[in-house]
Design a protein around this nucleic acid. Sequence first.
DNA 1: CCAAACTACTTAACATGTTATGCTTATGCG
DNA 2: CGCATAAGCATAACATGTTAAGTAGTTTGG
Lengths: 121, 121
Amino acid sequence: MGPVRQLLSGVDLTEQQWRVLRVVQESGPIDPTQIADQACLLLPSLTRILQKLEEKGFIDRARDETDRRRQVVTLTATGMEVIEQNIDASLALIERTREKMGAEDYEALLDLLRKLNGLEL
Amino acid sequence: MGPVRQLLSGVDLTEQQWRVLRVVQESGPIDPTQIADQACLLLPSLTRILQKLEEKGFIDRARDETDRRRQVVTLTATGMEVIEQNIDASLALIERTREKMGAEDYEALLDLLRKLNGLEL
DNA sequence: CCAAACTACTTAACATGTTATGCTTATGCG
DNA sequence: CGCATAAGCATAACATGTTAAGTAGTTTGG
């Protein structure tokens, strides 16, 4: 993750903050529980991350009027800009890693990690 | 790591504290820089962990009289006891994970992780 | 219909990850 | 020898991981 942190340091974002932004971008309006699931974060961590992202003006949070326990997280225009400005470098970094490892090994690693993650120990 | 944390919660040790204890046990008297290397920890984290382990009475720290910048970390009798009391369950947990994943996949995962770790991005 | 159980999220407290900085002791070199 | 530099740790500051509790809103069984 070192290169990722370096990439994001220019816009004052951490790995996790970036990951959450990307999840919101790809999913559209979404509630924290689903974000946590997709970003592999526990809710207490996500709570703090969403607070930071809101302070920075990258997301908005609204109460879900159907179920008032829930929130709806949305990207702001600023948030979309930040993603646009960094997405190419981010994807390039992933691709570079994939090439350095070899595509087959890269996929094999992901599969094995998913398998380990799915295990009941 | 969930099961590991559960295993160690009985003796009030965290994963990393346990890992450091194990490194010291296997290496014998050793300095913090080498511990950090073997346990995959950064020195600031290790500093705090060693402080905790010393408070708990599981390790001793002495200045290296040859090079007074260095320390020598040693297991105490209490530290050895804690390891003896938990090592079997710890190894059993590793073995169980290995079996659940399948030995081949388990080894393949370790190899791929080592490969990724060795990569220069 | 209502109290108990549950869900979604927050807060708190402590441990660690990460980067930058500081301090002390060693080393290399002119 | 004497100083600049480097090595080995410690500290500080902030972000996250992890577990336990707390709060508000919802659902459900009697």
